[in-house]
């Protein structure tokens, strides 16, 4: 029970100016809505945010950007976010674009205690920069570093009081790896149940990776592009 906190405000205690955060989600799918809202209500600023995307205008991470609480974004794709564009062009916001698979693996590696590894993505492009390159099996690879964060904030479908998490459909995306890469990991879940109620065979993220957990409220689950077959 020691992991359970009452709400997002309690969960984010300790997040300070200049810290590095990981935020789960792909687009608006599987984002930690409650914690993002709670962060917007604080005066915390100068954050480095590692997140595949940056929300859209005034939704998800877009809200933090609007309040100029973010100093640097590490993402693979920015998406539809005018305020983001404005801050990037004016130089207020530093942006590091990282190939999506490399970003995912850097987070996975960070959580798994692997400081660096080689991938083919980015070789011969501006992503290579001055990184070390090596040939393996006749193919060129670029060295990439594992990533950790002061806080990782993830969103799951179900969780238990031991911190075990289960995601739903494609809302897993970056959440599972980020949970392991946070020095402190906060999980917000749609349904929090007592330990023992989730089938241990079906856990995606084992509770060892989660330090704080709470049941979120009022999920908006906005969809970027509703596409139907008729």
């Amino acid at each position: 029970m020691r992991k359970v906190v009452n709400n997002a405000q309690e969960a984010i205690v300790g997040i300070k100016d200049g810290m590095t955060l990981m935020l789960g989600g792909f687009g608006l799918c599987g984002i930690p809505e409650n914690c993002l809202d709670a962060l917007v209500d604080t005066e915390v600023k100068g954050l480095t945010c590692i997140s595949n995307n940056a929300g859209i205008d005034n939704v998800g991470l877009g809200k933090l950007l609007r309040k100029s609480q973010v100093k640097k974004m590490m993402s693979s794709y920015i998406g539809e976010n005018k305020e983001f564009e404005r801050q990037m062009f004016s130089g207020e916001l530093e942006v590091e674009l990282i190939p999506q698979g490399t970003l995912a693996e850097r987070i996975r590696a960070g959580g798994a205690g692997i400081p660096a590894f080689f991938v083919p993505a980015g070789y011969g492009t501006e992503v290579q920069g001055d990184k070390e390159v090596r040939e393996f099996n006749g193919k060129m690879h670029v060295m990439e570093m594992g990533l950790r964060a002061d806080f990782a904030i993830v969103k799951a479908w179900k969780g238990d009081t031991a911190g075990n998490l289960i995601y739903r459909h494609t809302a897993n995306n970056f959440n599972n790896m980020m949970a392991a890469a946070g020095i402190i990991t906060i999980a917000e879940v749609e349904e929090l149940v007592p330990a023992g109620e989730l089938d241990p065979n079906c856990i995606h993220t084992p509770g060892i990776f989660v330090q704080r957990i709470f049941q979120g409220v009022d999920y908006k689950k906005q969809i970027e592009f509703v596409t139907t077959s008729e």
Binding site: F26, L28, V226
Partner: peptide, 20 residues
């Protein structure tokens, strides 16, 4: 395929962020 209107699910999207 893309879902019927009544089956749209925010937790089920493709890499283009479209509902599937």
């Amino acid at each position: 395929p893309f879902p019927k209107k009544e089956n749209v699910d925010a937790d089920l999207i493709n890499a283009g962020k479209q509902t599937v």
